[in-house]
């Protein structure tokens, strides 16, 4: 679909979404205060939601806000406030040796992979309703059914594996938290 004439509202929506995403992402990295960083993250998440709506993936957009902005970042904030992280966190000392070099390698690999994907694969975005895999749904129609079918048939294994992973993570977190409290008590005594 590359080369098709884009309507001006589409371009506007893309520009707004892209600006929100990039500004938020830079904010997360540049801001010193952890709460402000979390707020920047919310800006990015909203930008992604706008981009989803522009692709008429309404359901994904709203789930993005409910799950990420509405629950996960709130949990980040909860932890930040719970631990009482200071307003400026000194990051001069590297907690892991060689972390920065590894991070640089990771960035190069990720960007290289993305570019390789862009060059080789079919580019479906730009067409309306990516969620229904090339069959444009009428504008405004709900795409919950298409996503539901995809998740519970084609991608069932990945879906169930993710669910299992999350359960394992929760159980592991509970286990670690209990042990920590254990030591906490002994330390006090």
């Amino acid at each position: 679909m590359i080369g098709a004439a884009y309507a001006i509202p589409d371009i506007l929506a893309f520009v707004v979404a892209a600006l929100m995403i990039v500004a938020g992402a830079i904010g997360v990295l540049a801001v010193r205060n952890p709460v402000h960083a979390a707020l920047s993250l919310i800006l990015t998440l909203f930008g992604v939601a706008v981009a989803f709506v522009a692709q008429s993936a309404d359901f994904l957009a709203v789930v993005q806000i409910i799950v990420y902005a509405g629950a996960i970042v709130v949990l980040f904030l909860f932890v930040i406030m719970f631990l009482g992280v200071d307003r400026t966190d000194p990051v001069r000392v590297e907690p892991l040796v060689g972390q920065r070099a590894l991070a640089a390698v990771g960035v190069v690999v990720t960007i290289g992979g993305l570019v390789a994907l862009l060059a080789s694969s079919h580019w479906v975005t730009g067409a309306i309703a990516v969620s229904s895999a090339g069959h444009p749904t009428p504008v405004g129609a709900s795409n919950v059914r298409a996503i539901g079918t995809a998740v519970f048939t084609t991608y069932l294994f990945a879906f169930e594996a993710t669910a299992a992973l999350l359960i394992i993570a929760v159980v592991g977190a509970v286990l670690l938290a209990r042990r920590e409290r254990h030591m906490d008590r002994e330390g006090e005594a």
Partner: peptide, 11 residues
């Protein structure tokens, strides 16, 4: 998205 908007807003 209907009622999901309400969930998003309460979030």
């Amino acid at each position: 998205i209907g009622v999901l908007l309400m969930l998003a807003m309460s979030g």
